[in-house]
Design a protein around this nucleic acid. Structure first.
Lengths: 205, 205
DNA sequence: TGAGAACGCGAGCGTTTACTCGCATTCTAT
DNA sequence: ATAGAATGCGAGTAAACGCTCGCGTTCTCA
């Protein structure tokens, strides 16, 4: 159940082993899907012994957890820096920039994301995503708070939560739907409209 | 892999068995979670032999699939009838009614939904949800189409898809977050605002 | 250069779990 | 009443898979 490596790699040799194992995990996940991803197969693909695998990853979950951790860490950085950069501009531009940033963060390994995202709940990794929410929601909330006068939502925190729980799956759905859709500018337009329409003061009808 | 029952129950006795098995599946899922739900345990809880279980369900997946099927069937009916009832009224009322209907549909067995929803991808049931989308998206699209003059989206089908992929996870997230949040009227207000803001002509800012 | 730490190995153990099979029991229809 | 269909049984099988353990190899450092 522990997620921490049983042993930290100290020598260059073992750091390379860990690296190779993570790459192999990615490949196996993508090529064979989650079900068929076994520790033995990962080790085999990595050209490493299972025993060595278990020196650095206490269990299978930790292996995939490490991959997920990398993703969320990158997304946190990406999200925070993008928001900081656009926080003072007009809302539509800010929304668009954030959406594009999140999408860019998923464009790198779309097939890996597809497999892992689908299986997130299965892992103890619910916690990881909740962790991302715990990080991002306050950021968005304080953005809304600061512009309270220009925006509709009364409860900034609730609105931020709604946005997270709305955009995240929307982007994921777009990723799952394949690259040609994912890249479609019309999709980004709609996602932006969703955010702006939600935050902006009530329009007509 | 087949999802169809290996044999259809003909006598009252066997129909009762199937019913009992489904109830037991629900209970085991709720009480023990997905991981610990084994066919043997389900049979045991049902007070039925595993052998009998496999007479009517070709595999474990079919067992849970049957449960999911019931849910989606009910949701389709609920969704269609609600939309038909409010299609001619004002948008905010229609949106609210639909959201409330969907939420009502999840209020019945929230703990079951929690377990099953989390694990949907794991099953071959992606298909089931896609089936629901295939059913609901055209309905929404034609609603938008009909009111094209009063609404913003140019591409009705895309807009309908975005709404589906937005609201569904939002409601699910609310379910997962627990009943006290789920019942909160502020949440319904926000979800409604999301839909209305998205569909209505551009507001200010 | 040698001792001890770090690293690597992989056959195989132990457990879990979906699923089968041969036979017993109960129902239906004539 | 009875043949045959439907239903029910549950110990047992087979396969998958996470993970261990004992031992060999390579590195670090004084």
């Amino acid at each position: 159940m522990t997620r921490q490596p049983r042993k930290r790699p100290r020598q260059a040799r073992s750091r390379a082993t860990v690296e190779t194992l993570l790459e192999a995990t990615t490949r196996v996940l993508v090529d064979h899907g989650f079900e068929k991803t076994t520790t033995n197969r990962v080790a085999e693909v990595a050209g490493v012994s299972v025993g060595s695998l278990y020196q650095y990853f206490p269990n299978k979950e930790a292996l995939i957890g490490a991959l997920v951790e990398v993703h969320f860490t990158r997304m946190r950085a990406l999200f925070a820096s993008t928001l900081a950069a656009v926080a003072d501009g007009p809302l539509p531009l800010a929304a668009r920039a954030l959406i594009e940033a999140v999408m860019a963060g998923h464009r790198e390994h779309p097939d890996l994301h597809r497999v892992v995202l689908e299986q997130l709940p299965r892992l103890g990794i619910q916690a990881e995503r909740d962790g991302f929410d715990a990080f991002a929601v306050p950021l968005i909330a304080s953005y809304i708070e600061r512009r309270r006068a220009d925006l509709r939502p009364a409860d900034a925190h609730l609105a931020a939560w709604v946005l997270m729980r709305t955009l995240q799956p929307l982007v994921h759905a777009a990723v799952l739907r394949g690259p040609e859709f994912f890249a479609d500018p019309a999709f980004i337009d709609e996602a932006t409209a969703l955010v702006v329409g939600y935050l902006a003061p009530v329009g007509e009808i």
